[in-house]
Computed example of a mutant assay.
Amino acid sequence: MNFNNNDYINISTDLIHDIFYSNISSRGRISSIRQYSEILIRKILDINPKKQVTVGDITIVKSLKKKSNNNKLIVDALKNIQTLGNKYTHTQVTEIVSDENREKAFDALLDISAFLFVDYFSKYGFEKNPEVKSYFSLLPPELRYKVLNNLYEMDSSNIAIIDKLCISILKFKGEAAAYTWLKIHESELKNIPTMRAELQNSTIYETCSDNIKILSDYFASHDVIYKTFEEAILYYRELGKIQGNTPEIVEFNDIMELLYIGRRPAK
């Protein structure tokens, strides 16, 4: 491996501070988002720290397209960050950064972060390791939603992905959005069987519907435990890394560690 988290601790901490915890301008924030995205790209492509990396480099773009099989999540995110980064780092653009463009930059950065896990689960499978699947829940619901939604687009018959996707929608977007998604995909979900002890020959549609109902009732009187990295990091630190030294475990721990570098726990 060329990429090592330890090489990027200082710069990642600085950039995360500028992006999420400082009072810098939106123009400066977008510049920091672009720089931090280059660190994540180095991780995705396993690039040597001595090699120069820029978001718009044609070689980098081609490598990401090839590695991701033109995955829309990473390709569109890269394009948005490149466009916004170029626009707001040149002095001929004197306009104020719009709220829409600022949020688009944040969203693109989260998409690149999500692709780290899309790439990982494409390699190892989402349902194969229960412990990995459990630790994956130590991420904010929005990030989990982006990962699972993309995995579902790649494999719409995987019951483990569908089950967790419905829950992530509920936690990120709310009960109405979860039921809407379920209704939109009703016909295909009712053709995917899943065995449950209390209900033989049920489908993933019934399973998801039941889970949404149970969790919605629970969240009616309890808050979602964590919605942000700053809230989730408390639980991540408490549990620590998954024990083991297989490539699957090492790679997962490495991605989690990278994304939590520089994050500050919520008060």
Rank of each mutant, 00 (worst) to 15 (best):
T207C: 11
E188C: 07
A220E: 12
E186W: 06
L234Q: 10
V224M: 06
L116H: 06
E251W: 01
S25C: 14
K171T: 01
E95V: 09
Q92A: 14
T246N: 09
R144H: 04
G28S: 11
K173R: 14
L189C: 02
D18C: 09
N150C: 11
M1P: 05
G262A: 15
T13P: 01
F106C: 05
S216M: 12
R29E: 09
Y124W: 14
Q200T: 12
I161Y: 00
G85D: 07
N69R: 14
I112M: 03
I161H: 02
K190L: 08
F20M: 04
T246G: 08
I19D: 02
T194P: 00
K104Y: 03
E95P: 05
G125A: 14
G240H: 03
L189M: 06
S113R: 13
L148H: 11
I167F: 03
M256D: 03
N48R: 05
S221C: 08
I212F: 08
L40E: 07
R144N: 05
I249P: 00
Y218E: 11
N10K: 15
E131L: 08
M195E: 13
I233T: 13
Y145S: 03
T228N: 05
Y88H: 15
D217R: 15
I212P: 02
E95Y: 10
I261A: 07
D155E: 15
T59S: 09
F229C: 06
L73E: 04
T89Y: 04
Y36P: 00
S157D: 12
M154K: 15
D7K: 14
